[in-house]
Design a binder for these strands. Sequence first.
DNA 1: GTCTATACACCGATAGAC
DNA 2: GTCTATCGGTGTATAGAC
Lengths: 199, 199
Amino acid sequence: MRTSVENRRAALVEAAVRVVSARGLSAASTRAIVAEAGMSLASFHYAFESRDELLDLLITEVLAKEEKAVLPDRLEGRTITELLHAGLTGYLDHLRTDPAHEQAMLELAQFAVRARPELAREQYSQYTRIATAALELAAHHTGTRWTVPVPTAARLLISLTDGITLTWLVDRDDDLAESVVAAAATALAELTVADGRPD
Amino acid sequence: MRTSVENRRAALVEAAVRVVSARGLSAASTRAIVAEAGMSLASFHYAFESRDELLDLLITEVLAKEEKAVLPDRLEGRTITELLHAGLTGYLDHLRTDPAHEQAMLELAQFAVRARPELAREQYSQYTRIATAALELAAHHTGTRWTVPVPTAARLLISLTDGITLTWLVDRDDDLAESVVAAAATALAELTVADGRPD
DNA sequence: GTCTATACACCGATAGAC
DNA sequence: GTCTATCGGTGTATAGAC
């Protein structure tokens, strides 16, 4: 059973995400957040001990929903290059659909590095675990194997998506981003070989 | 001839970089900056119209000094893979030598995306031009050519360095970062072929 | 030109009425 | 529980003495 306080906390977290997405973390004051949520200022401090407590929840709960390793659902009948390309294209589409949200995630991640380094570390190690599993699955389904440790390839993939996100947010150049995604898929695929063969 | 005002502006910019590096952009208030520079608050507004004007200068002047495409000086007797690996390793060494500075640059870039998008765009297009020239030079010196448009490869390289920076700042895992750099160099090199040959 | 003192807005947080 | 009113602190910016 959800208590009223928990509903309020959830509403405030959602409002905070909207404010950060629209105007940035520096504009996400408690006043701006309660205005977005349609509450009074005192209600904020009834639901949360402090603004820091809400930011903690933003980092752990909202960043955790981020899917850094996007691989397509249907894996059949594709090469590893096609699979990586489809996955990265899916992420790019997601970014283009809701750029403000991805910008907010990047901003929260950067804030976390400074303010809550242990939360940031835990979050990225979670990303790496998910990406590792996805890349292993992708290799398995395409009869290939990775010639570098899979966590390394996963970390490379995550670095790539972070970097592609930032650069696209800077210039919003769709054509260039698609070209980069295609090149990245090709380059990453070269880190695999047909299973059973030597490197 | 440097006027006293220009000296003051330069001193304030340098102080601002130190504050952002040490405590983040959100802590870089005018008061914190003048304290770091050893001036009074009024001197700030004698040199700058407003805090925004200093931030503009931070973005254009300080971000412009960033070298995103680091390639080693001596190019002889290396393969393209070795060249890329040496370049990326050089960047990683630079990051590890002064992580606070790179974190400040990333923070400023992200701020610029929101507050001064046209400055951010100009800055990244400059990065791309430099990286493009470097990658063309690298291919030329190793008797190879790029199988993707060079600006695409350059953008991929910039995305990679941005992503590698963020992920290393998160967990400071040197071994993993070196492993990623090696894998990235290998993967990128696969986007080249010996000159004169078909793809 | 450079300082101290201060104006005024907004911040996070809380007291106390209802 | 939820509100209005307000506290103490800090932010940017400026006035005015020197």
